Simulated assay, not measured.
Amino acid sequence: MAVSEKTRKIIWGEAGGRCAICRVQVVTAGTDYDDPSVFGEEAHIVARSKGGPRAGLLDDASIDSHTNLVLLCSRHHKQIDDQPGHFTVDRLREIKAQHAAWTRSLSEATPGRPKLVPNPGFPQPRVLTLITRGNPLWNMIKSSVTFEYALPDGLPAENEDLIMEFLNVVQDYCDIAAELHSVRENRDAEKGLQSYLSRLAERNFLVGAFVRQMLLTDGSGQEGTPWPMLRVKVQPASHATITDEGGRPFPNEQPSTGASDKEQSA
Rank of each mutant, 00 (worst) to 15 (best):
A240I: 05
R113L: 05
R8S: 12
P84G: 13
F250W: 09
I131L: 08
D175Y: 03
D59L: 02
H86A: 10
R113A: 05
N119V: 00
L206E: 02
D60A: 11
N139M: 15
V207N: 03
P118I: 05
H76A: 08
F250E: 06
E94S: 06
E108S: 14
E5T: 13
N119I: 05
K6Q: 03
R199W: 05
S260P: 00
V170D: 06
V89T: 12
E42G: 09
R54A: 08
D244L: 08
Q264M: 14
E14Y: 06
T243H: 01
Y149M: 07
D59A: 09
E108Q: 14
S220W: 11
W12Q: 11
A157I: 10
Q83R: 13
V232W: 03
I63P: 00
N186M: 04
Q213V: 00
D90F: 05
V170A: 00
H44S: 00
W138Y: 11
T241K: 00
R187E: 13
P123V: 10
D60T: 13
D218L: 11
L130D: 01
M214Q: 11
S4T: 13
H239E: 11
L116C: 04
G56Q: 12
L230E: 02
F39S: 09
A61Y: 09
A209F: 08
A43T: 07
Q124T: 08
I242V: 14
E41D: 04
A43M: 06
R126I: 10
A178D: 14
W227A: 15
D261A: 01
A177V: 11
D261N: 02
D64A: 11
L200H: 05
A150D: 06
S220A: 13
N186K: 14
E190S: 02
G85C: 03
D153I: 08
N252D: 13
V183R: 04
G154V: 02
T110W: 07
Q124M: 10
K262I: 01
W12K: 13
G247I: 07
T241M: 02
M229D: 03
R91L: 15
R113S: 07
A150E: 02
N139Q: 15
V27I: 07
V27F: 08
L193F: 12
A20F: 05
W102H: 13
V169G: 13
G121L: 12
A43V: 10
V38R: 15
N204S: 11
A266I: 01
A15V: 07
E14F: 08
K142S: 11
I131F: 05
L69P: 07
L200S: 02
K9G: 09
Q171C: 14
L216S: 10
E253L: 10
F122Q: 15
M229T: 10
Q79L: 15
T132A: 03
T67W: 02
P152K: 00
